[in-house]
Amino acid sequence: MTDRVPAPDEMPDIQRNFLPTRALLLSVRDTLCPSRELALADALTAARQTLARQRPLDEVAAAIFAVMWESVSCLELAANIAAPWVDRQMGHLPHGRWAEMTRYDGGRANRFYESSHNWTDERFAYVSGHRFDEPPGTSILDALREGGFQDDRLDRAFAEAEAATTRWMRKKFEQLATRWHLLRSYGASYEHGLLLVPSAHAEAVAKDGMVAPDALMAWESRKDGVLHTEHATPREVLDWVEGAGELAIRLADYVADTRLVLSESFGFDHEGAFLRPLRNLIPYWVEDGDLPDETMTLLDGFTLNWIRGNPEPNADAVR
């Protein structure tokens, strides 16, 4: 059994920063992500059933717009949670990023997705949790080195994890940005009145001037315009939409979870805050085969324990 090691004096303001941040991130990981996941799955099942039962086109449109709206909600959740690490708007204030997550910013998700193709690898590393923007570009390893810890194997594993995660994220953000761009108007139309156009009394005209059969049609919300699908059956539209929400949920979950690693390394008891073993300190989010097995084993097994009275942390690669 390890000693109870008190938290350092210089930890962030517990009441106004640390605990609100921890609570918000826990709510994202343990409540909001599962909520969006269940809602999306429910909407998808309902849409597939509506198609299978060959319901009237307006009902099919409503069901598929519901999936689009759920997907947009997932995308916005991910943007709201991740943007404070790459597009900080309140960095001049000392409250941590939690305040930013609770401030409504109508342009946040748009900026987040539509600027992502211009991000440097370093900015992706801010999202992935490998690096911090304060001071810019600092890595987790820099923080460990400052504490007197250095391990070449870990340095290599970190570099591999960071590079693979950045590569994967860059590819996936292209997908997220495309879906955001095309789905957000449908999401707004669904939310602000479910603005269906009656298919029995309307025709969608495609770009080539031809009538688009089986088009799903809606009025735009809050501005002039109409939305409709073309050159695709409703089933194909649904297939195209399907993965976007799930990917956004994974992103939100990943961002919250990687930040919680630090929060969860602090415990609280009647004497105040104390340090807990630090696990999963170096994150990764990659496709199968993108990281060597031995790297993943090292990263998954890395635990940093704290010993009272020892000025330097003692790290063990366990398991």
Partner: peptide, 14 residues
């Protein structure tokens, strides 16, 4: 396939 977005008047005939 991608959903399309058209300006008002150009995309729907009522």
């Amino acid at each position: 396939m991608e959903p399309n977005h058209e300006p008002q008047g150009a995309g729907i005939r009522l």
